[in-house]
C-alpha cells in the first residue's frame, strides 16, 4: 500500500508492505539509520521517533500508522542551514553520549518533553526519560544536557 506522510518536513509517499515497521521503512527504504534498533520490545527507546510530536517506538509501530502524519527523526532536527537543535548542541557540550547508539532516541524523547514543557523539573525529566536506556553514560550527562536545552528553549520563548 502507499502511505503519504510528512517526513522531516518533506511530504513523502512510499509504497510499503502492511507488515513493515516504521523502523524498517525509515532505516531500509529512507536510509534514515539514525533510527537505531536494540531491544525490539519498547523498553530501550533507541528507535524513538516523533509522530505528530509524540515519541513512539519505531520498531513496534507499523509504518501504516503514519498515514497523514508528521514523522521526525534525528536527521530532521538540525535546521536547513545545518544549525543544530539546542538539544543536539547540549548533548555535545555535556558529553552526553559515548557509543552514541541511544543518542538519537534520547534526543527525540527529550525534544517531545521540552516542546510540551520547557520548564520541566528534574523529576519530570527523569519520569519522562525513564523509558530510554543508556548503557554508557550513567545518565547524569544526559540530564545536564536536557536542563541546558530547556533553559535555552525557555529563553527563546
Amino acid at each position: 500500500m502507499n502511505v503519504s506522510f510528512e517526513l522531516n518536513g518533506k511530504q513523502t509517499t512510499l509504497e510499503i508492505e502492511q507488515r513493515e515497521s516504521l523502523a524498517e521503512v525509515l532505516r531500509g527504504r529512507c536510509r534514515l539509520t539514525g533510527v537505531k534498533i536494540s531491544c525490539e520490545a519498547q523498553v530501550c527507546g533507541s528507535c524513538t521517533v516523533l509522530v505528530d510530536d509524540l515519541p513512539v517506538s519505531a520498531c513496534t509501530l507499523l509504518a501504516y500508522e503514519v498515514r497523514g502524519k508528521r514523522v521526525t527523526t534525528i536527521e530532521g532536527l538540525a535546521d536547513d542551514s545545518g544549525r543544530l537543535h539546542p538539544l543536539q548542541q547540549a548533548f555535545l557540550d555535556h558529553f552526553s553520549f559515548q557509543c552514541g547508539y541511544c543518542t538519537p532516541g534520547m534526543i527525540l524523547a527529550a525534544k517531545a518533553l521540552l516542546d510540551e514543557n520547557s520548564a520541566a523539573t528534574d523529576a519530570e525529566i527523569v519520569a519522562h526519560m525513564n523509558g530510554n536506556l543508556c548503557r554508557c553514560t550513567g545518565y547524569l550527562p544526559i540530564l545536564k544536557a536536557i536542563r541546558q536545552a530547556a533553559n535555552q528553549l525557555r529563553g527563546q520563548k
Binding site: 532505516r27 534514515l32 539509520t33 539514525g34 533510527v35 537505531k36 534498533i37 527523526t73 534525528i74 536527521e75 532536527l77 538540525a78 543544530l84 543536539q88 548533548f91 555535545l92 558529553f95 553520549f97 552514541g100 547508539y101 543518542t103 538519537p104 534526543i107
Partner: peptide, 21 residues
C-alpha cells in the same frame, strides 16, 4: 582539555554509521 568529541556531530545528527546500518 575537554575538547569537542571527534565523533560528536555524527552521533547527535544520526550520521554516525554502525555496522548494523
Amino acid at each position: 582539555h575537554s575538547v569537542p568529541r571527534g565523533d560528536g556531530i555524527p552521533k547527535v545528527t544520526g550520521g554516525a554509521i554502525y555496522t548494523s546500518d
